[in-house]
């Protein structure tokens, strides 16, 4: 480990299982990230989000009364959201494809299946830090560009007005 702690970086963990919360906090401490906030569901998390404006969110999927999908939508779409661009890593035991797709369509940045390994978590975080994604706003969706990789051999279907043209970034 090199250098001083990341004093001003703030991370929010949203997880209803106390053991998993503790595990994630410990992993963040191993990275020298000290400002870690915890919530046991999406509703409590949103209150912390407004107060603390974290730089990164790690969230579970299944929680009550507000789950990780609804929380992610709130972060991305609510007018009260202090930072709709905040990276969100969803960490869950759910590996069913339809749930993964729900998470993606809610606007999560990265998806990580449990069991957690340090290597997999750190790879996801490195991806976020080193290659921040473009965001897309279109009918019914705001979040990271779901087309993660440009596929040169892709022939369509084309769904965006700017497909096959020079992309205009604002």
């Amino acid at each position: 480990m090199s250098g001083a702690a990341f004093d001003h970086l703030k991370v929010l963990i949203v997880e209803d299982n106390v053991h998993m919360r503790a595990l994630l906090r410990t992993l963040l401490m191993a990275l020298d990230i000290k400002n870690v906030f915890e919530a046991d569901n999406g509703a409590n998390a949103f209150a912390i989000l407004r107060d603390m404006s974290p730089d990164l969110i790690l969230t579970d999927l299944t929680m009550k009364p507000v789950d990780g999908i609804a929380f992610t939508r709130e972060v991305r779409l609510s007018k009260q959201s202090p930072n709709p661009y905040v990276p969100i890593v969803m960490i869950t035991g759910h590996t069913e494809r339809h749930r993964v797709e729900m998470a993606r369509d809610a606007g999560v940045t990265e998806f990580l299946a449990k069991p957690i390994t340090a290597q997999n978590l750190f790879l996801r975080l490195a991806e976020i830090v080193e290659r921040p994604r473009s965001y897309v706003r279109c009918n019914g969706y705001f979040g990271p560009d779901r087309r993660r990789r440009a596929e040169e051999t892709y022939k369509g279907p084309w769904r965006r007005h700017d497909d096959q043209s020079d992309l205009e970034f604002r």
Partner: peptide, 27 residues
């Protein structure tokens, strides 16, 4: 949505750097 044909959907793309990300030194 057949191959090679465009469908008119309005999507705005927002590039990194135009929204808040990690400060370069932190990153």
């Amino acid at each position: 949505s057949s191959p090679g044909q465009k469908k008119s959907t309005t999507a705005t793309k927002i590039a990194p750097g135009t929204y808040p990300t990690f400060a370069t030194a932190d990153a």
